[in-house]
Amino acid sequence: MDSVDLEVLKSSARWLADGHRVLLVTVVKTWGSSPRPVGAMLAVRADGHVVGSVSGGCIEDDLIDRVRQRGVEQERPQALKYGVSAQEAHRFGLPCGGTIQLVLEPLTLASGIAELCAAVEAGRLIARTLDMATGAARLEPAQATDGVLFDGTTLLTIHGPRYRMLVIGAGQLSRYLCSIAVGLDYQVTVCDPREEYTEEWNVPGTTIVRAMPDDTVMDMKLDERCAVIALTHDPKLDDLALMEALKTPAFYVGALGSRRNNAARRKRLKEFDLNDEELARLHGPAGIYIGSRTPPEIALSILAELTAAKNGVSLPELLRVEGAKAVREMAGNAVGCGAL
């Protein structure tokens, strides 16, 4: 769960505790283009105060106007669609005639929002099941890491802590990568036992640790909502992190380096008793091929690949650094041979 949606839940719980009526709005389905993804949330207080978003702003305005005029009058959750017609799509700012389906849920103290917030802040992954007919909500430990399921009778949403990122190395590239990662709402930890690097580290929103990388990986207890990126170019540091991270459920484990260094790294890691399946999880050289040369461009390349992995997008080999460079070399050799 990103910090925006957690803030929606925390504000809802606070408003309820203060005696306000609150309407919780959740995006449950989209067709075509949509400004906000499935699972995005908005809370509207009876006096029109609002936190979160479900669109580019026009749908929020309509919901706020509805609440201001009528209050939170409904007693049970209801589903609502916006943008069914081209006219509505234009009115509500939905691009390309998109359609969005929302669930509007009037909250009470029995909705379990305060308990849900406490569980998420404690680092637990929670499934919340809402009965559309009664408005009753049930909280249970979740198995999946993300997801929204809506069948018209129940709404299942998964809530959990923020995605975490462990970066090995506090060099220049790490500064750019971590700055962007903070903007992407990752909880970023930077590990580097070298004082000459950590003494100058000052990227806001990140945590710096000076322990050995393998110890840090184990201490963080990485799960499916974690990513690890090794950026030091020093095998004594990168390999220590990778050999432990590849044994965890982390959704992304990557390492910077050339194709030659990557091949040597894989050979070294195999000596640490990593099996072929674990080694296959390593993204190396990390990133997608965009011709990047500068540290900011390399950071963008790595985070693009990481984002695809987070969102379950399988990238074609031609987009990966190793595959793209191999094809470019083959093309160059073919041209050279033709010129002879």
Rank of each mutant, 00 (worst) to 15 (best):
D5K: 02
L6K: 00
K10L: 07
K10N: 13
K10V: 14
R14Q: 10
W15Q: 00
W15I: 01
A17K: 13
R21N: 10
V22M: 09
V25L: 01
V27L: 12
W31E: 13
S33K: 05
S34I: 11
P37K: 06
V38D: 00
A40N: 05
V44E: 00
V44L: 04
R45Q: 04
R45V: 01
S53T: 11
V54L: 05
C58G: 09
L63G: 08
V67A: 06
R68A: 14
Q69T: 13
Q69P: 03
G71W: 00
E73G: 11
E75D: 06
P77H: 07
A79E: 15
K81C: 15
V84H: 05
V84M: 14
Q87L: 15
G93M: 08
P95M: 04
L104H: 02
E105H: 11
L107S: 09
T108C: 05
I113S: 00
A114S: 13
E115T: 05
L116D: 08
L116K: 12
G123L: 06
I126M: 10
I126N: 01
A127W: 00
R128T: 08
R128C: 06
T134L: 02
T134R: 08
E140T: 12
E140D: 10
P141E: 11
D151G: 13
G152Q: 09
G152M: 05
T153N: 14
T153R: 13
T153A: 14
T154E: 15
I158Y: 01
I158L: 09
I158N: 06
G160I: 03
R164G: 12
M165S: 07
G169T: 01
G171R: 01
Q172H: 15
Q172A: 11
L173G: 00
S174C: 13
S174F: 06
Y176F: 14
V188A: 04
T189N: 07
V190N: 03
E196Q: 15
E196C: 11
E200P: 03
N202F: 07
V209E: 03
M212E: 14
D214N: 14
D215Q: 15
D215Y: 10
K221Y: 08
E224I: 12
C226L: 03
I229M: 09
A230W: 07
A230S: 11
L231G: 08
L231D: 00
L231E: 06
H233Y: 08
L237H: 03
D238T: 06
M243R: 14
A245N: 00
F251C: 03
F251E: 02
V253Q: 04
G254L: 04
G257T: 00
G257M: 05
R260P: 00
R260Y: 15
N262Y: 02
A263E: 09
K267H: 15
K270W: 13
N275L: 06
D276C: 10
E278I: 07
A280Y: 10
L282H: 04
P285T: 05
A286H: 01
S292H: 05
P296H: 03
P296V: 01
L300Q: 08
S301V: 08
S301M: 08
I302K: 01
I302H: 03
L306Y: 08
A308Q: 07
A309V: 01
S314H: 13
S314Q: 14
A324E: 02
K325W: 09
A326C: 06
A331I: 15
G332F: 05
